[in-house]
């Protein structure tokens, strides 16, 4: 508690150690803080300039086609958007996959690799809080990525004076579809990348998990369609994440599917698609909880 005066008349205060008497906001606040930090981190905010490049670039790539479609619709005075709201994400699945592969490992592998996880668990938050915050932030980041172009499309559609009710309904369905996609992809991406503390492995594994089943499903669907077993096509989509979403959106959300011949799964199959999607999301959460049971301290 000493105060020194320098010749210039300036003061140097040594106020010693001060105790903190302010509020401690506890577990829920810490969980929110972790959520917002992770969500910002998924777009490189609060991180180095270098780590902003890829997420921002992919965000731009995701929005660009929407902008072009809007421009085309407005200038050609077409009566319809060239692509349905719910199908937009399906078309650009490669971009979403890349984004997930780059950011999911960033979100979880980093904490594992640098052993920061014990620092979290030595604080008020618990395992469930950590997993929930990470899951929610990844899903949130994906939702921003997939919903932003829909907003552009919707705004463009209104500018082009397309039917308001029609467009609003489509937009709403699109948002539901992208929310489901965000949860599903976030879960899969986080589970895969939480398996390895190595970021490179995580990136490769996420890409593999998203593309290999899709390639396999598409190929088998193509063969089935060629051989005339149309019923099988509808069910095969269950086996890859993006066709799962495709099945749900084409059955319930008024979209058309990317399956061969634009075939839409039957309502029964659609219900199964929706149930399987939700089960996979829940399963991913359970797997993450299991993963962090061992990782603490």
């Amino acid at each position: 508690m000493s105060t020194e005066t320098t010749p210039g008349g300036a003061y140097i205060h040594n106020i010693g150690y001060r105790h903190y008497d302010g509020p401690r906001l506890g577990r829920a606040y810490a969980r929110r803080s972790l959520f917002s930090q992770s969500l910002r981190g998924a777009y490189g905010l609060g991180r180095s300039a270098k780590s902003k490049v890829l997420p921002m670039l992919l965000f731009g790539v995701m929005c660009l086609p929407a902008g072009i479609m809007v421009a085309v619709t407005v200038f050609t005075k077409a009566g319809n958007l060239p692509i349905g709201y719910t199908r937009y994400a399906i078309y650009l699945q490669a971009v979403i996959g890349l984004y997930l592969a780059s950011q999911a490992p960033q979100s979880v592998s980093r904490d594992l690799r640098f052993k920061t996880v014990p620092l979290y668990f030595s604080r008020p938050i618990e395992r469930a809080d950590y997993v929930m915050a990470k899951f929610a932030s990844m899903a949130g980041a994906l939702f921003i990525l997939t919903a932003a172009p829909l907003v552009i499309l919707y705004a463009g559609a209104l500018l082009a004076k397309l039917d308001f009710l029609d467009q609003t309904k489509g937009f709403g369905q699109g948002l539901v579809s992208s929310a489901l996609l965000s949860l599903l992809f976030a879960g899969i991406g986080l589970v895969v990348s939480a398996l390895t503390p190595r970021r490179g492995f995580g990136v490769a594994a996420v890409i593999a998990v998203l593309t290999i089943p899709y390639g396999a499903v598409s190929a088998v669907q193509g063969i089935a369609s060629f051989r005339g077993s149309e019923a099988a096509v509808g069910w095969l989509g269950l086996f890859s994440p993006i066709t799962l979403i495709d099945g749900v959106q084409s059955t319930f959300l008024g979209g058309s599917s990317s399956f061969p011949n634009g075939q839409t799964p039957s309502t029964a199959a659609g219900v199964v698609y929706a149930v399987v999607s939700l089960l996979v999301i829940a399963g991913c959460y359970a797997l993450l909880m299991r993963r962090y049971r061992k990782a603490g301290l």
Binding site: G22, L25, R110, F114
Partner: peptide
């Protein structure tokens, strides 16, 4: 237990918030 790509200030601020500090 420290991530190498953030500064000490950023890291400790984050950890303070994890402890419940506004």
């Amino acid at each position: 237990c420290l991530p190498p790509d953030v500064s000490a200030t950023e890291f400790v601020v984050h950890m303070a918030r994890m402890s419940g500090l506004p």
